[in-house]
Each structure stands twice: as structure tokens, then as C-alpha cells.
Simulated scan of single mutants.
Amino acid sequence: MKPLPVQQPDREPELGARLRNHRLRVHITIEQLATATGLTKGFISRVEREQTSPSVTSLVKICRALRVDIGALFEEPPTSLVRLDDAPAVDLGGAGIHERLVSAPELEKAQVLRATVEPGGEGEDSLYTVDCETEILHVISGHFLLRTAGGDYELESGDTVTFSGREPHSWRNLGEEPAEVMWVLVAG
């Protein structure tokens, strides 16, 4: 039987960068990691900068100290593609707005909505809140008004405003053309 050709990935897994990310996530300095593993700071720094590869023994020590499974370092992180035409429609209220969920539906900590707001389209008359920690509104095109309890923000194409998800607000398209906006809702 003829051996099957094994295709190598186009790029090597960035082991050093992944180790550095795990170290930073658990708030450990290179010096603390060196002490915990018995390895030198210089060696760990070179590994993180992809200048050297750790032996299996060194990698095991680093992973134990970081409390990360070695296999997790070699897994490809999930990637999700949502095409605008295929994005599910959502309705968060308001008139003259067509919203689509353009982030991966399984995301729990962040949601990205792309909306087309017709001229004169507007949110509720009374200010409301959305169940999230932070909201980010980016105006792709058009002339848009964000109303908050603290004041109004007239936004033009390219403007972005970030505010607390607990801040009561509403909105309106002030222009004579449809406005394209992106809402990012971030959970706490």
C-alpha cells in the first residue's frame, strides 16, 4: 500500500505567542514563571519570541506552571465567518431599522449587529437600556443621533461612541439617506 501524502499546515503554530498569552492571562511575570519552572528568564523570553523551541521536558514544566494542557497549545482556535447576506435578522425594537447579527451566534460575551436605518428611523421615545456591560456604536455611513440621559451625540460617518450598557439611550437617523451603523454589545 502506498503511503498517503501528509499535508503540512501553511504556518507553524505560534507556540511562543500562545505560551505568552497564557502567561499574561494568569498574570504571571517571566521572572515568576522562571522561578516556578527552574528555567531561566532569558530562555522563557526566547521561547515566547519564537527564537528557540522548548524541549518536551521544558514545555511540560511551563504548561504545568501555567496550568494549561499541552494539547491546547496546538489546537487551532475556532474561527467563524458570517456573511452579511446570511446573517440572521434580529429585532431589538424601533422603527425603520433592519438589524442583522453579524457575529457568530454562539458568542456569549460579545454581539455585533449591523443595522440599516431608514431616513427618520428611530428608537423608542423613552430612553431604554440593553442587557450588556458596554455598548459601542460605530457609524459606517450617514448622520445619526444617539440620545442618552447625559446628552445627545450627533454622529457622522466614521464616528464611534462607547458607553455603559446601563446608560438609558435611544437613537434616530437624522439624514435624508439610510444610515449604516454597527452596534457592539459586550457582556460583563
Rank of each mutant, 00 (worst) to 15 (best):
T40P: 12
T40K: 07
T40L: 07
K41H: 08
K41Q: 13
G42D: 12
I44Y: 02
S45L: 04
R46A: 12
R46L: 14
E48C: 04
R49C: 10
E50A: 11
E50Q: 14
Q51K: 12
T52D: 05
P54D: 01
S55Y: 01
S55F: 01
S58W: 04
L59A: 01
V60S: 09
K61E: 15
I62A: 03
I62F: 00
C63S: 10
R64P: 01
R64G: 01
A65Q: 06
L66S: 00
R67D: 14
R67K: 14
V68P: 06
D69R: 11
D69W: 01
I70W: 06
G71A: 15
A72K: 09
A72H: 08
L73Y: 00
E75C: 07
E75P: 02
E75R: 15
E76D: 14
E76R: 14
P77N: 10
P78Q: 09
P78E: 14
T79Q: 12
S80M: 03
S80C: 08
L81Y: 13
V82M: 13
R83F: 09
R83D: 08
R83E: 12
L84K: 15
D86V: 00
D86F: 02
D86Q: 15
A87K: 03
D91F: 02
D91I: 07
L92A: 07
G93Q: 09
A95S: 15
G96E: 10
H98W: 07
H98M: 07
H98T: 07
E99D: 11
E99F: 00
R100A: 08
R100L: 08
L101A: 08
A104I: 04
P105M: 02
E106W: 11
E106H: 12
L107K: 08
E108H: 14
E108T: 13
K109Q: 13
A110M: 13
Q111G: 03
Q111H: 10
V112Q: 03
V112I: 11
T116V: 05
E118T: 04
P119H: 00
G120Y: 03
G121N: 11
E122A: 15
E122N: 14
G123L: 05
G123M: 06
E124W: 02
D125L: 15
D125N: 13
S126D: 13
L127Y: 09
Y128M: 06
Y128Q: 09
T129M: 11
T129L: 11
D131P: 07
E133F: 04
T134G: 00
E135N: 07
L137Q: 03
H138Q: 06
H138V: 05
H138A: 09
V139E: 14
V139Y: 08
I140T: 05
I140M: 05
I140P: 01
S141N: 06
S141E: 14
S141P: 01
G142Q: 13
H143E: 14
F144I: 03
L145D: 04
L145E: 10
L146N: 06
R147Y: 06
R147P: 10
